[in-house]
Amino acid sequence: MAVEGKTIDALSQFELSPVGGVFGWAVSFSQSNLFMVIAVVLTFWLMKATADRGAMVPGRLQALGESAYEFVAGMVRDQVGDEGKKYFPFVFSIFMFVLFGNLLGMLPYAFTYTSHIMVTLTLAVVVWVAVTVIALKRHGMHFFSYFFPEGAPVWLAPIIIPVEVISYLSRMVSLSVRLFANMVAGHVMLKVFATFVVLLGGLGAIGPFVAAMPLAVNVALVGFEFLVAFLQAYVFAILTSIYLHDAVHLH
């Protein structure tokens, strides 16, 4: 998959193919879906293990689950305030889904479902619709004052309102594109440098020495990708919290 006829093929890692034999073909159950299921099962298992044990002095697994919980709970509390507590399950689900998607993609042979714009866009649309519905429920028609700042001259309304509406809609796009672009860029870079290792390694006697350079780059990149995996899940969740804050407080 990495090297085919001495060319760099960095994008075939994102191709979907059905898994699970006949069943997979029948319902188009791709490896992307498989890893989504794995992510959900892992999240569920982690939280269940954390909640079941409930030891006063947590073990490693329980500490992991509790720190994830407290991390997101603290974020929601800080960003949205006390009214935001009831939206915590939503933010936590989004965070864990994105985090596990990014991290599972770091395993060899795994598929990164967050590297597909359709997946991230769907997540962003879910966030956007949820935030808009929450704002509408809390504020009713007053919500639309969000699109026209108080004190602005009325004759500017034909310009300000479309611009604000476009800005509001663009949250959806920027939220999804940020995650998608980060994951695709990271995995493409990994694959390109891994291909360099193979291509340069075949250069006779000096090959292995030259190939050590892209290999070193790849080692650094793997570490960097773990950082990006956490950071992007964090950014996705904190932006969700900030949008929730806007929806709850409306200004």
Binding site: I166, S167, L169, S170, R171, M172, V173, S174, V177, R178, A181
Partner: peptide, 14 residues
Amino acid sequence: GVEVVSALVVGVGL
């Protein structure tokens, strides 16, 4: 860049 491009994409799409 992401912010600019996404707003532009939404505007052009609309």
